[in-house]
């Protein structure tokens, strides 16, 4: 029996809205540690790894680990029916082929429940090694989203180059070329405007912009985003889910022939 009650139910909707265009169906794995989701897009170029810790839930009961295969588009439709301040409770039987979502308004004057059919999805989990990244940059999530949007109007490939002077995003296309450089800014009076760069050694990687732009759909989740890079490894783009967990995106680089 699974029963999990999330007071900030809106976080679930923000996570699903952030990933549903990249991955259509996914297995949500539940264990005593919480909820996890790992899935790749169809081209296996990008991967999402989400974890929501059990202690994020006001009530969490998972008698035995289970994997719930879902269409993320259908899950998004169900979560759209929740009020932004609703408490969301998930319930599923161990051998069940459905999962029930219950939405309660804060004043408990409105309760609704939606039952979603589960699917059999063969999961292709990859082992993501813990990496000591050469460069990590934590910047305002809105800033990252804006860079992706602006550069996408110029080109479809971006070189991200982290040096001691800052992190430079470069693209070029028929229109011309564009450079955006983001510098360390730890003196901003508002914490959410700060940009922190931790550089162990310079690194430059090339990526397809459309994936980085898709990752920016997670912007409503957090004030900051962290990009972590190491030579010839996928970039990790990470959004914290408040203090409950994280939503990580990985994107394979383009390798110069």
């Amino acid at each position: 029996m699974l029963e999990a009650r999330l007071v900030q139910g809106s976080m679930l909707r923000k996570v699903v809205d952030a990933v549903k265009d990249l991955v259509s169906d996914a297995n949500i794995d539940v264990s005593s540690s919480g909820f996890s989701l790992q899935a790749m897009d169809t081209s296996h170029v990008s991967l999402i790894a989400m974890h929501l810790r059990a202690d994020a839930f006001e009530h969490f009961r998972c008698d035995r680990p289970m994997s719930m295969g879902m269409s993320l588009a259908n899950l998004a439709k169900v979560l759209k029916c929740a009020g932004s301040d609703d408490i969301v409770t998930l319930k599923a039987n161990d051998d069940g082929d459905t999962v029930t979502f219950m939405f309660e308004s804060p004043k408990e004057d409105r309760v609704s429940d939606f039952e979603l059919k589960l699917m059999d999805i063969d999961s292709e989990h990859l082992g993501i090694p813990d990496t000591d990244y050469c460069a990590t940059v934590t910047m305002p999530a809105g800033e990252y989203a804006r860079i992706c949007k602006d550069l996408s109007s110029i080109g479809d490939t971006v070189v991200i180059s982290a040096t001691k002077d800052g992190v430079k995003f470069t693209t070029s296309g028929d229109v011309g070329t564009a450079n955006v450089t983001v510098r360390q800014n730890t003196t901003a009076d508002k914490k959410e405007d700060q940009t922190i760069i931790d550089l162990k050694e310079p690194v430059a990687l090339t990526f397809a912009l459309r994936y980085l732009t898709s990752f920016a759909k997670a912007t409503p989740l957090a004030t900051h985003v962290t990009l972590s890079m190491t030579r010839e490894l996928p970039v990790m783009v990470e959004y914290a889910i408040q203090d409950m967990g994280h939503l990580r995106f990985y994107l394979a680089p383009k390798i110069e022939d």
């Binding site: 790749m40 081209s43 296996h44 170029v45 990008s46 991967l47 292709e124 989990h125 990859l126 082992g127 993501i128 090694p129 490939t157 090339t206 397809a208 490894l233 996928p234 990985y250 394979a252 680089p253 383009k254 390798i255 110069e256 022939d257």
Partner: peptide, 14 residues
């Protein structure tokens, strides 16, 4: 010309 890598080349199967 740059070739798009796939994740399997970087992350092993579990």
């Amino acid at each position: 010309k740059a070739t798009q890598g796939r994740l399997e080349s970087f992350f092993g199967p579990v």
